[in-house]
Design a binder for these strands. Sequence first.
DNA 1: TATGTCAAGTCTCAAATGGAACTAATTTCA
DNA 2: TGAAATTAGTTCCATTTGAGACTTGACATA
Lengths: 160, 160
Amino acid sequence: MNKNQPAQQFTHSDLILENNAIGSIWQICFVANSFVFPIYAFYDKQYKISRMEFVILFILAHKGKLMAWEMCIMTGLPKNNISRGVKKLESKGLIKRSQDPKDARRAILVTTKTGEGLYQELIVHYTRRADDFLSLLDEDDKNDLDRIMLKLSKSMPTIS
Amino acid sequence: MNKNQPAQQFTHSDLILENNAIGSIWQICFVANSFVFPIYAFYDKQYKISRMEFVILFILAHKGKLMAWEMCIMTGLPKNNISRGVKKLESKGLIKRSQDPKDARRAILVTTKTGEGLYQELIVHYTRRADDFLSLLDEDDKNDLDRIMLKLSKSMPTIS
DNA sequence: TATGTCAAGTCTCAAATGGAACTAATTTCA
DNA sequence: TGAAATTAGTTCCATTTGAGACTTGACATA
């Protein structure tokens, strides 16, 4: 899939970095990167959709409507990135923006029909990969993972 | 810390995307991004060390010596990135490369004393943040997290 | 020992990224 | 009220990133 990676199809177990200085954080980052990397490469190639564009579609599809600053918080991504993604999606007719009547600085963003359609097409690949991946875990593991990651998500500390 | 982010110091709980199409994967990515983002910004500012450079120092410090292709597998990062990181670290005198006698294409990489010293300085911030972060969990949670993330790390699927 | 294939690593180039400065709207509070 | 501070979002610019082509070395098969 990715010609920039060495040819090994699976990670060698002895090249997993257990017991490192930052504990599970390393594994969390490794899993996150390794999981999404091929998907975004695929979206880019097949649909000319960037990571930022997909992420925005994804959260809009779930929340219905959002403002850019809410997207920043939801994704943890910088606002200039979000701003560019929004502009691009708008120019492609995949989302629409309207002024917030209460605050002229803010724009309320929603997907268009086309955008919703594209999202439905894209998400199939993502969920299939996620299901494959999580199928390695039994039900208890999945519940533990859900609970723990949610707990961590809700209280991400700023830098100390 | 990051002027590109909206000013909220903590994530709003209602802006956490629970029950989404890809389950815990979303949280894993969110946590990974939100966790490392401020650290690498800090390293860049204070030490002029990029993410790639740190990651290479980190795994070298743990494994002693490695070749570039092993780093790719361990990190899930593209080989051209690793190659550039290695070149930069070498030019700064933080790592050293020597030919693999068994295969002239390969280079065996190790940290220099300076590199090891810098790593020791950098890792303090990282582990402090990791400890703060994981202190949100009780011992059972931590063990579950370790176990599950390790299981997932060891069997990352290629794209389907 | 030729020859085609594969592997490790580098290079090029276009695109994505993030920090910082900026604009414009809103809020704070003297 | 009005100046100062804050916030939402954009733009600029330098750096980082990744895909793909490329180079060189190893290896398999004949």
